[in-house]
């Protein structure tokens, strides 16, 4: 962690600065594949305005460090998408946006890739069909947290499914009164 001194000096590590820079200037490659791309555009445009989070969409994969797979990845496009991923410089991250790119979505057919994680590693899955811009922002914030956790040497752990609270099984916490 950075240490602040009163006379305007900040002591920190190179690691910290790099991670801070990386997570606050995520530049996604603008790869729009299907319906989800429209919501991705909405996230970038006037109302949700990802620029304020340092997220600027780039036309070239060589300038970007995060790939938002927005839309249905069909078999034919899979090798091209892999190529784009390979062209991105390290370090790089992948957000899989929507049901289609996460698991094939509503298209369990001969033509559709059943989950983009069969060809490229995915860091954050955003559910939805399409996910709202808020959901995509959630995904991006999650990714930032993930990058931060990695810097601190922590292992980013998924929440195991049984620990996610559901409506039928409320998590019983001990009350402060002990009953």
């Amino acid at each position: 962690m950075a240490i602040k001194h009163n006379n305007g000096i900040i002591l920190t590590t190179v690691e910290e600065v790099l991670s801070w820079g990386r997570r606050n200037s995520l530049w996604p490659a603008s790869v729009g594949l299907a319906c989800c791309a429209i919501e991705m555009m909405h996230t970038a445009a006037s109302r949700f305005d990802t620029d304020r989070l340092g997220i600027i969409f780039r036309g070239s994969p060589r300038q970007s460090d995060v790939l938002i797979v927005a839309g249905t990845v069909v078999n034919k496009v899979a090798p091209m998408l892999k190529l784009i991923y390979d062209q991105m410089p390290d370090p790089k991250w992948v957000i899989s946006m929507g049901g289609c790119s996460s698991a094939g979505g509503p298209f369990p057919t001969y033509a559709t890739l059943q989950g983009v994680d069969r060809i490229i590693p995915v860091d954050v899955y955003v559910p939805g069909c399409p996910p709202t811009p808020q959901a995509l922002l959630w995904g991006i914030l999650k990714l930032q947290k993930k990058i931060k956790a990695k810097k601190e040497g922590k292992v980013w752990e998924e929440i195991p499914m049984e620990k996610v609270p559901t409506a039928s099984q409320p998590i019983k916490e001990k009350s402060p009164f002990g009953f």
Binding site: L113, G115, R118, I120, P121, M161
Partner: peptide, 23 residues
């Protein structure tokens, strides 16, 4: 074409064999 995330994929248990992909 097995998923890169390993054997126990959290969301679904699909077959590792996939329809044809072009090279």
């Amino acid at each position: 074409l097995p998923p890169l995330s390993g054997e126990e994929s959290p969301a679904h248990n699909y077959s590792p064999y996939h329809t044809a992909l072009p090279t």
